[in-house]
Design a binder for these strands. Structure first.
Lengths: 182, 182
DNA sequence: TTTGGCATGTAATCCGTTACATGATTAG
DNA sequence: CTAATCATGTAACGGATTACATGCCAAA
């Protein structure tokens, strides 16, 4: 048995619920929809599509002649069932790994300027992320105003936005602590 | 060349700066110090120690006869230099992966009760985490009051605390959104 | 005496990324 | 014409976990 606990097939099934797509389309779709908290590579995507087709969860349709060679996949009832079954399982615990915090924890063993630079980077990157996600919220509320999934999409963006703000605030706090002897 | 980008040796070196330890000690130490944002398994730890010894970054001392069989490692100047060099490198970008957000994003395809249960779990787990980290802060401020690293340790705990609170608040918000048609 | 904690280690395996290979089509 | 983009795929590799193997010592 291979790739049992992989979530790649589930992302694929979830997105194919919106509309039929090719592997290439899926990659692009993943980046602009769940991109701020998930990602997939082609090396995962194409094998996953083949396996889902074998299991009858999706059906692939070769593009009609004349077009560029591509295969568009659509979800089946079996696919929808598999997705629904996965969705009710409690999400698997993901062990945290934060390399920046490791460098902060051992901060005394390094030059303070280096640590300060890392914190500055985090602050600016997080502020940029927060702004981007705020813009995305406004855009979606406008463009997808009547999509039934909008509510769920906005919740995930809100998580990202709160997290980005939290990171920026913590970075400012940490820089402050580093600056004086507070 | 093997295990080039692994951060296991760096965690080992960082902790050995505090005091000499065995592999078994290191595992326990990792759990109670950086445990809320990092982890290592024996399968990584022991090979890393052997490699660090080969490279001259640590020196191992077999326990004196009579004691239980164990090998205590101490960091060397070469080890401190390797750690310092790593600490100034900007932390590698870690692609985010959040399975819960995936389940929220596709929430419309599942029974609402299942999603609500996931959010309840997150809320209670996050509240518990926040309380634990608050207690840990108080404990460290008391027990390690004069440790020069205290400042850095508290910063990492503060990150965890803010993050836990953020997660709890978002979960409450999400449950609220799910409850009505806001 | 037997259970549980101390202590070290390895082999199999897994999930996933990276790099590479290939080729068609469209826009400048 | 040629660079970029569309489009699909595979092989090799890499970091890490899991499960297993082994054995000593102390306490109940």
């Amino acid at each position: 048995m291979k790739n049992v606990s992989s979530r790649t097939p589930m992302v694929v099934l979830g997105l194919l619920c919106i509309e039929p797509m090719s592997g290439y389309d899926l990659k692009a779709m993943i980046e602009q929809s769940v991109g701020h908290f998930w990602h997939e590579s082609y090396g995962q995507l194409y094998p996953a599509l083949h396996e889902l087709e074998e299991r009858g969860c999706v059906v692939g349709q070769e593009a009609s002649s004349g077009e560029r060679r591509r295969k568009v996949y659509a979800i089946t009832d079996a696919g929808r069932a598999a997705l629904a079954e996965w969705l009710v399982q409690p999400p698997a615990w993901q062990p945290a790994r934060n390399e920046l915090l490791l460098k902060v924890f051992f901060g005394r063993m390094a030059q303070p300027e280096a640590l300060r630079a890392h914190l500055e980077d985090l602050r600016s990157a997080s502020e940029r992320d927060a702004a981007q996600l705020a813009a995305l919220t406004a855009q979606l509320e406008h463009e997808q105003a009547n999509a039934p999934e909008l509510r769920y999409w906005l919740l995930t963006i809100d998580f990202g936005h709160r997290f980005a703000q939290m990171r920026a605030e913590w970075a400012r706090h940490a820089l402050h602590v580093m600056a004086e002897g507070t």
